[in-house]
Design a protein around this nucleic acid. Sequence first.
DNA 1: CGACATCTTGACTACAGTCAATACTAGTGG
DNA 2: CCACTAGTATTGACTGTAGTCAAGATGTCG
Lengths: 247, 247
Amino acid sequence: MDSLKTTVNVQCENCTIRHRAVCSYCNDSELDRLDSIKYYKTFSAGQSIANTSLPMSFVGSVVTGVASLSQTMEDGRTQMVGMLLPSDFVGRPGRDHVVYDVVATTDVTICCFKKKPFEQLMIEMPKVVQRLLEMTLDELDAAREWMLVLGRKTAREKIASFLLIFAQRAAVLQKSKPKMDIEFDLPLSREQMSDYLGLTLETVSRQINALKKDGIVEMPTKRHILVPDLSILLAEAGDDADGGFYS
Amino acid sequence: MDSLKTTVNVQCENCTIRHRAVCSYCNDSELDRLDSIKYYKTFSAGQSIANTSLPMSFVGSVVTGVASLSQTMEDGRTQMVGMLLPSDFVGRPGRDHVVYDVVATTDVTICCFKKKPFEQLMIEMPKVVQRLLEMTLDELDAAREWMLVLGRKTAREKIASFLLIFAQRAAVLQKSKPKMDIEFDLPLSREQMSDYLGLTLETVSRQINALKKDGIVEMPTKRHILVPDLSILLAEAGDDADGGFYS
DNA sequence: CGACATCTTGACTACAGTCAATACTAGTGG
DNA sequence: CCACTAGTATTGACTGTAGTCAAGATGTCG
């Protein structure tokens, strides 16, 4: 339990996810209200945030780190069904048990609200509900896009699609010009990647090294990736065009 | 275009999906408001309801029939990412293009609202937004459950999981007692099933007939299914327990 | 340094995919 | 009513991709 500590709160106005999270439509006075009931919680890498057997007492937003959602069959086969990145929402208002296991993949800080006060807040502040709807629709689109990856793509295309998630995020954050390497760390182990992609860890290892041998990515360390040309990676993923990154 | 006809409206109070659709939290006066702006539209089997290239002018609820959501790669591989059954919501408020193709699998009737008036309605009637959020969260759970099917289940388990969707629905509608056959029609062709399951149509055919040979289902015609024992089908799908259907 | 996690590589296997022939079904028109 | 067709479904033989099992390499932390 030593790793489950309550962290000092950051004021909402200064929060890094202020303009993307469930609170993003709130004005200053509404933010004060949130400020008064929120509390931070930190989980270390590998720690369980919620699971199907234990009821979950809070909902909240990921502030830093990466968490994973996964489902496991009795015989042990597991499928990761989502990754929670900063600003993503955890938990479901109106339900107190969660239908998949939520685990911290890296160290994770969550801005939490006790379930009851948050539900009251949803009644009083329609903007929060509206934002939550929008975020949920986005997640639904992402889940469905991932269904195409799981159902129809080859192992190589799956790996490329996975790397693209981080490469595109990094490209935006780095505001990278064309022809500049995109660079990022993999927050997942080979085994976690295999759970996300519906593959075995051996196949993940083989295909990642095949992409490296073909010069599509560089790998200075096993967890660090360089992408010299994003459009080539996009083509390997079987995706149409480059989404207008380079015009 | 002859098959795209506007049907005579049913009054909201008498509607079969009144208590499950996006309108389910509305009171009588709110229902009057909906009544005044809604219109019915019917699509015949095989017809496109919306696609990625054409903007969609309305949103709405499926009243009768089955529609499918699917994504296609340039090389023709396609993955069905959802089925829309009666009471399910079509379209996304705030977006005018849809990110997957929506096709009528059987004849489909939709209760439509023009996008603009519906968005106005969402501002004035928080209950609608709240219900839509709830339905979207349910769809997200369903999509994630399907990710486990696509990523980790064998062909046989996939078929069993697919049949279960309809078998469980039929069990509820038939209020079937234990030990009574569950009976339903397949609304999808073998090829459509293969698109939903991430398989080829040959594999679907082989596995369906394997389940038949093993006595897990009976098939009086190629599109009609009898399930003598739901719990056996559940076991074949690799699902845990029977969800408390029989206590 | 040693111990344990993680990752890579190799040899072999099996499940689902591919290609192709055949059967069944429903609808059309002579 | 039967013949013909087109769409849908089944079955067979063979192939290939990813899975399995196992050994070894690399990396990390006490």
